[in-house]
Amino acid sequence: MLLRYILRRILIMIPTLLVTSALIFTVMELPPSDYFETYVAEMAAQGEKADTSRIEFLKREYGFDRPPIERYFYWIANFVQGDFGYSFEYEMPVRDVVGDRLALTILVSFCTILMTWIVAFPIGIYSATHQYSWADYGLTFIGLLGIAVPHFLLALIFMYFANVWFGLSIGGLMDPVYLNQPMSWEKAQSILAHLWIPVLIIGAGGTGSMVRAIRANLLDELQKQYYVTAKAKGLPPFRALTKYPLRMSLNFFISHIGDVLPAIVSGSELTAVVLSLQTTGPLLLRALQSQDMYLAGSFLLFLSCLTVVGVLISDIALAFLDPRIRLQGGSTK
Protein backbone atom coordinates (compact mmCIF):
# COMPACT_ATOMS: atom_id res chain seq x y z
CA MET A 1 0.00 0.00 0.00
CA LEU A 2 2.63 2.49 1.09
CA LEU A 3 5.06 1.23 -1.56
CA ARG A 4 2.49 1.67 -4.30
CA TYR A 5 1.77 5.15 -3.02
CA ILE A 6 5.44 6.10 -3.22
CA LEU A 7 5.80 4.56 -6.66
CA ARG A 8 2.79 6.45 -7.94
CA ARG A 9 4.14 9.68 -6.52
CA ILE A 10 7.50 9.17 -8.24
CA LEU A 11 5.80 8.51 -11.57
CA ILE A 12 3.77 11.69 -11.22
CA MET A 13 7.03 13.61 -10.74
CA ILE A 14 8.13 12.96 -14.33
CA PRO A 15 5.39 14.89 -16.16
CA THR A 16 5.54 17.60 -13.48
CA LEU A 17 9.23 18.16 -14.12
CA LEU A 18 8.79 18.04 -17.91
CA VAL A 19 6.17 20.79 -17.77
CA THR A 20 8.35 22.83 -15.39
CA SER A 21 11.40 22.51 -17.62
CA ALA A 22 9.40 23.55 -20.67
CA LEU A 23 8.18 26.60 -18.76
CA ILE A 24 11.70 27.51 -17.67
CA PHE A 25 12.97 27.13 -21.20
CA THR A 26 10.15 29.25 -22.62
CA VAL A 27 10.83 32.03 -20.15
CA MET A 28 14.53 31.90 -21.00
CA GLU A 29 13.68 32.18 -24.68
CA LEU A 30 11.19 34.99 -24.25
CA PRO A 31 13.56 38.00 -24.36
CA PRO A 32 14.11 39.10 -27.95
CA SER A 33 17.92 38.87 -27.63
CA ASP A 34 20.20 36.12 -26.38
CA TYR A 35 23.41 36.08 -24.37
CA PHE A 36 25.62 36.67 -27.40
CA GLU A 37 23.77 39.73 -28.61
CA THR A 38 23.82 41.20 -25.12
CA TYR A 39 27.50 40.41 -24.88
CA VAL A 40 28.35 42.01 -28.27
CA ALA A 41 26.30 45.07 -27.41
CA GLU A 42 28.02 45.37 -24.05
CA MET A 43 31.42 45.07 -25.67
CA ALA A 44 30.50 47.63 -28.32
CA ALA A 45 29.33 50.01 -25.65
CA GLN A 46 32.73 49.74 -24.01
CA GLY A 47 34.36 50.40 -27.35
CA GLU A 48 35.80 46.94 -27.74
CA LYS A 49 35.26 44.31 -30.35
CA ALA A 50 33.96 40.93 -29.47
CA ASP A 51 35.63 37.80 -30.76
CA THR A 52 33.10 36.95 -33.48
CA SER A 53 34.65 33.68 -34.53
CA ARG A 54 34.45 32.37 -30.99
CA ILE A 55 30.85 33.51 -30.68
CA GLU A 56 30.02 31.81 -33.96
CA PHE A 57 31.64 28.62 -32.65
CA LEU A 58 29.70 28.69 -29.39
CA LYS A 59 26.46 29.44 -31.23
CA ARG A 60 26.95 26.43 -33.46
CA GLU A 61 28.11 24.24 -30.61
CA TYR A 62 25.03 24.96 -28.53
CA GLY A 63 22.63 24.89 -31.44
CA PHE A 64 21.55 28.51 -31.37
CA ASP A 65 21.12 28.30 -35.12
CA ARG A 66 18.56 25.53 -34.72
CA PRO A 67 14.87 25.88 -33.73
CA PRO A 68 14.11 26.27 -29.99
CA ILE A 69 12.25 22.96 -29.76
CA GLU A 70 15.35 21.07 -30.84
CA ARG A 71 17.50 23.00 -28.41
CA TYR A 72 15.07 22.27 -25.60
CA PHE A 73 15.32 18.52 -26.08
CA TYR A 74 19.06 18.77 -26.48
CA TRP A 75 19.25 20.60 -23.15
CA ILE A 76 16.94 18.19 -21.37
CA ALA A 77 18.69 15.11 -22.72
CA ASN A 78 22.03 16.42 -21.50
CA PHE A 79 20.58 17.52 -18.18
CA VAL A 80 19.37 14.03 -17.45
CA GLN A 81 22.87 12.72 -18.13
CA GLY A 82 24.42 15.20 -15.73
CA ASP A 83 25.67 17.72 -18.29
CA PHE A 84 24.06 20.97 -17.27
CA GLY A 85 25.41 22.98 -20.18
CA TYR A 86 28.02 25.68 -20.52
CA SER A 87 28.12 29.03 -18.81
CA PHE A 88 29.06 31.60 -21.44
CA GLU A 89 29.86 34.23 -18.91
CA TYR A 90 32.26 32.17 -16.82
CA GLU A 91 33.42 30.23 -19.83
CA MET A 92 33.28 26.92 -18.10
CA PRO A 93 30.72 24.13 -17.58
CA VAL A 94 27.76 25.07 -15.39
CA ARG A 95 28.57 22.23 -13.08
CA ASP A 96 31.96 23.69 -12.24
CA VAL A 97 30.59 27.18 -11.78
CA VAL A 98 27.95 26.09 -9.34
CA GLY A 99 29.90 23.30 -7.68
CA ASP A 100 32.30 25.53 -5.79
CA ARG A 101 29.60 27.62 -4.28
CA LEU A 102 27.16 24.84 -3.60
CA ALA A 103 28.96 23.49 -0.54
CA LEU A 104 29.11 26.90 1.10
CA THR A 105 25.48 27.59 0.26
CA ILE A 106 24.36 24.34 1.77
CA LEU A 107 26.40 25.08 4.88
CA VAL A 108 24.87 28.52 5.35
CA SER A 109 21.34 27.41 4.61
CA PHE A 110 21.54 24.31 6.72
CA CYS A 111 22.77 26.26 9.72
CA THR A 112 20.06 28.84 9.13
CA ILE A 113 17.31 26.24 9.03
CA LEU A 114 18.67 24.51 12.09
CA MET A 115 18.77 27.76 14.00
CA THR A 116 15.25 28.60 12.85
CA TRP A 117 13.93 25.33 14.22
CA ILE A 118 15.87 25.40 17.45
CA VAL A 119 14.75 28.91 18.25
CA ALA A 120 11.25 28.81 16.83
CA PHE A 121 9.98 25.61 18.41
CA PRO A 122 10.35 26.48 22.09
CA ILE A 123 9.14 30.03 21.49
CA GLY A 124 6.16 28.87 19.45
CA ILE A 125 5.17 26.30 22.06
CA TYR A 126 5.59 28.81 24.86
CA SER A 127 3.54 31.44 23.03
CA ALA A 128 0.74 29.00 22.32
CA THR A 129 0.51 27.67 25.86
CA HIS A 130 0.74 31.15 27.35
CA GLN A 131 -1.55 32.87 24.88
CA TYR A 132 -2.15 36.59 25.53
CA SER A 133 0.44 36.73 28.30
CA TRP A 134 2.99 39.54 28.28
CA ALA A 135 5.69 37.15 27.17
CA ASP A 136 3.50 36.03 24.28
CA TYR A 137 2.92 39.63 23.19
CA GLY A 138 6.61 40.44 23.51
CA LEU A 139 7.77 37.41 21.56
CA THR A 140 5.10 38.01 18.94
CA PHE A 141 6.31 41.58 18.54
CA ILE A 142 9.93 40.52 18.08
CA GLY A 143 8.86 37.83 15.64
CA LEU A 144 6.86 40.34 13.61
CA LEU A 145 9.90 42.62 13.51
CA GLY A 146 11.90 39.71 12.15
CA ILE A 147 9.31 39.11 9.44
CA ALA A 148 8.77 42.74 8.57
CA VAL A 149 12.37 43.96 8.28
CA PRO A 150 13.87 42.96 4.91
CA HIS A 151 16.95 40.75 5.25
CA PHE A 152 19.21 42.91 3.18
CA LEU A 153 18.33 45.94 5.31
CA LEU A 154 19.15 43.97 8.42
CA ALA A 155 22.44 43.00 6.79
CA LEU A 156 23.28 46.63 6.01
CA ILE A 157 22.48 47.67 9.58
CA PHE A 158 24.66 44.89 10.95
CA MET A 159 27.52 45.82 8.66
CA TYR A 160 27.27 49.50 9.55
CA PHE A 161 27.29 49.02 13.30
CA ALA A 162 29.93 46.32 13.20
CA ASN A 163 32.15 48.72 11.34
CA VAL A 164 31.35 51.82 13.45
CA TRP A 165 31.51 50.14 16.83
CA PHE A 166 34.03 47.36 16.43
CA GLY A 167 35.82 48.36 13.27
CA LEU A 168 35.00 44.95 11.81
CA SER A 169 34.18 44.02 8.29
CA ILE A 170 31.63 41.28 8.55
CA GLY A 171 31.07 40.71 4.84
CA GLY A 172 32.00 37.46 3.21
CA LEU A 173 32.03 33.97 4.55
CA MET A 174 35.72 33.83 5.36
CA ASP A 175 38.74 36.00 5.69
CA PRO A 176 39.70 37.27 2.20
CA VAL A 177 43.10 35.57 2.42
CA TYR A 178 41.48 32.16 2.26
CA LEU A 179 39.50 32.91 -0.91
CA ASN A 180 40.25 30.37 -3.62
CA GLN A 181 42.49 28.47 -1.21
CA PRO A 182 42.08 24.75 -0.68
CA MET A 183 40.21 23.75 2.46
CA SER A 184 42.39 23.79 5.59
CA TRP A 185 41.86 23.87 9.33
CA GLU A 186 42.44 27.63 9.45
CA LYS A 187 40.04 28.21 6.59
CA ALA A 188 37.35 26.17 8.29
CA GLN A 189 37.81 28.18 11.47
CA SER A 190 37.54 31.39 9.57
CA ILE A 191 34.32 30.21 7.90
CA LEU A 192 32.80 29.26 11.21
CA ALA A 193 33.73 32.62 12.69
CA HIS A 194 32.01 34.42 9.82
CA LEU A 195 29.08 32.09 9.57
CA TRP A 196 26.92 33.26 12.43
CA ILE A 197 26.17 36.68 11.03
CA PRO A 198 24.55 35.58 7.75
CA VAL A 199 22.83 32.77 9.61
CA LEU A 200 21.35 35.21 12.09
CA ILE A 201 20.31 37.69 9.44
CA ILE A 202 18.84 35.21 6.98
CA GLY A 203 17.21 33.24 9.77
CA ALA A 204 15.49 36.19 11.42
CA GLY A 205 12.51 36.33 9.10
CA GLY A 206 12.17 32.57 8.87
CA THR A 207 12.24 32.22 12.63
CA GLY A 208 9.57 34.89 13.01
CA SER A 209 7.17 33.29 10.59
CA MET A 210 7.93 29.82 11.96
CA VAL A 211 7.04 30.99 15.46
CA ARG A 212 3.77 32.42 14.14
CA ALA A 213 2.96 29.20 12.33
CA ILE A 214 3.76 26.90 15.25
CA ARG A 215 1.79 29.12 17.62
CA ALA A 216 -1.25 29.24 15.34
CA ASN A 217 -1.23 25.51 14.63
CA LEU A 218 -0.71 24.54 18.22
CA LEU A 219 -3.45 26.90 19.38
CA ASP A 220 -5.84 25.16 16.98
CA GLU A 221 -4.88 21.76 18.33
CA LEU A 222 -5.10 22.89 21.95
CA GLN A 223 -8.81 23.54 21.43
CA LYS A 224 -9.41 19.97 20.30
CA GLN A 225 -11.38 17.57 22.38
CA TYR A 226 -8.72 14.85 22.42
CA TYR A 227 -6.43 17.18 24.37
CA VAL A 228 -9.13 17.51 27.02
CA THR A 229 -9.43 13.72 26.98
CA ALA A 230 -5.69 13.41 27.55
CA LYS A 231 -5.88 15.77 30.50
CA ALA A 232 -8.96 13.98 31.82
CA LYS A 233 -6.87 10.83 31.96
CA GLY A 234 -4.56 12.59 34.37
CA LEU A 235 -1.59 13.02 32.06
CA PRO A 236 0.89 15.60 33.33
CA PRO A 237 0.45 18.83 31.33
CA PHE A 238 3.76 18.68 29.47
CA ARG A 239 3.36 15.07 28.41
CA ALA A 240 -0.23 15.68 27.37
CA LEU A 241 1.00 18.60 25.28
CA THR A 242 3.83 16.81 23.52
CA LYS A 243 2.06 13.53 22.90
CA TYR A 244 -1.16 14.91 21.42
CA PRO A 245 -1.42 18.52 20.21
CA LEU A 246 2.26 18.95 19.40
CA ARG A 247 2.34 15.71 17.48
CA MET A 248 -0.67 16.81 15.46
CA SER A 249 0.73 20.24 14.74
CA LEU A 250 3.85 18.56 13.34
CA ASN A 251 1.82 17.68 10.24
CA PHE A 252 1.99 21.26 9.12
CA PHE A 253 5.66 21.41 9.89
CA ILE A 254 6.51 18.30 7.94
CA SER A 255 4.56 19.36 4.92
CA HIS A 256 6.84 22.38 4.86
CA ILE A 257 10.01 20.33 4.62
CA GLY A 258 9.27 20.26 0.91
CA ASP A 259 9.92 23.98 0.70
CA VAL A 260 13.11 23.72 2.68
CA LEU A 261 15.12 21.65 0.19
CA PRO A 262 15.21 24.21 -2.62
CA ALA A 263 15.73 26.99 -0.09
CA ILE A 264 18.89 25.24 1.07
CA VAL A 265 20.39 25.61 -2.36
CA SER A 266 19.08 28.91 -3.58
CA GLY A 267 20.00 30.74 -0.39
CA SER A 268 18.88 34.25 0.24
CA GLU A 269 19.94 36.14 -2.87
CA LEU A 270 19.75 39.76 -1.80
CA THR A 271 21.36 39.24 1.59
CA ALA A 272 24.10 37.24 -0.05
CA VAL A 273 24.76 40.08 -2.46
CA VAL A 274 24.87 42.65 0.32
CA LEU A 275 27.13 40.54 2.52
CA SER A 276 29.12 39.38 -0.56
CA LEU A 277 28.74 35.73 0.36
CA GLN A 278 30.17 33.21 -2.07
CA THR A 279 26.88 31.32 -2.32
CA THR A 280 24.76 30.41 -5.31
CA GLY A 281 22.20 33.18 -4.79
CA PRO A 282 24.20 35.99 -6.35
CA LEU A 283 25.26 33.62 -9.10
CA LEU A 284 21.70 32.97 -10.17
CA LEU A 285 20.90 36.65 -10.02
CA ARG A 286 23.82 37.53 -12.24
CA ALA A 287 23.05 34.72 -14.68
CA LEU A 288 19.49 35.95 -15.09
CA GLN A 289 20.70 39.50 -15.70
CA SER A 290 23.20 38.55 -18.35
CA GLN A 291 20.95 35.96 -20.00
CA ASP A 292 23.52 33.27 -19.39
CA MET A 293 20.77 30.86 -20.26
CA TYR A 294 22.30 27.47 -19.55
CA LEU A 295 23.54 28.55 -16.18
CA ALA A 296 20.23 30.12 -15.22
CA GLY A 297 18.04 27.47 -16.81
CA SER A 298 19.88 24.50 -15.39
CA PHE A 299 19.97 26.12 -12.00
CA LEU A 300 16.23 26.78 -12.01
CA LEU A 301 15.49 23.28 -13.20
CA PHE A 302 17.72 21.92 -10.48
CA LEU A 303 15.69 23.92 -7.94
CA SER A 304 12.47 22.51 -9.38
CA CYS A 305 13.81 18.99 -9.03
CA LEU A 306 14.65 19.67 -5.40
CA THR A 307 11.17 21.11 -4.79
CA VAL A 308 9.48 18.06 -6.24
CA VAL A 309 11.76 15.70 -4.33
CA GLY A 310 11.21 17.73 -1.15
CA VAL A 311 7.46 17.49 -1.51
CA LEU A 312 7.78 13.76 -2.08
CA ILE A 313 9.91 13.38 1.04
CA SER A 314 7.47 15.36 3.16
CA ASP A 315 4.53 13.37 1.80
CA ILE A 316 6.22 10.08 2.61
CA ALA A 317 7.13 11.37 6.07
CA LEU A 318 3.51 12.43 6.57
CA ALA A 319 2.28 9.02 5.53
CA PHE A 320 4.58 7.46 8.10
CA LEU A 321 3.54 9.83 10.83
CA ASP A 322 -0.18 10.08 10.22
CA PRO A 323 -2.15 6.84 10.00
CA ARG A 324 -5.08 8.68 8.43
CA ILE A 325 -3.02 9.33 5.32
CA ARG A 326 -1.39 5.92 5.42
CA LEU A 327 -4.58 3.92 5.84
CA GLN A 328 -7.15 6.01 4.04
CA GLY A 329 -5.00 7.16 1.15
CA GLY A 330 -5.89 10.77 1.77
CA SER A 331 -5.73 13.36 4.47
CA THR A 332 -8.90 14.02 6.38
CA LYS A 333 -7.77 17.50 7.20
Binding site: Y226, V228, T229, Y244, R247, D322, R324, T332
Partner: peptide
Protein backbone atom coordinates in the same frame (compact mmCIF):
# COMPACT_ATOMS: atom_id res chain seq x y z
CA UNK B 1 -17.56 13.19 26.10
CA UNK B 2 -20.17 13.87 23.49
CA UNK B 3 -18.10 13.63 20.35
CA UNK B 4 -16.47 10.21 20.20
CA UNK B 5 -14.73 11.14 16.96
CA UNK B 6 -12.84 14.16 18.21
CA UNK B 7 -12.32 12.83 21.73
CA UNK B 8 -9.82 10.29 20.54
CA UNK B 9 -6.53 11.17 18.92
CA UNK B 10 -6.57 10.03 15.28
CA UNK B 11 -2.84 9.37 15.17
CA UNK B 12 -2.57 6.99 18.12
Amino acid sequence: FQEPMSSLSPVH
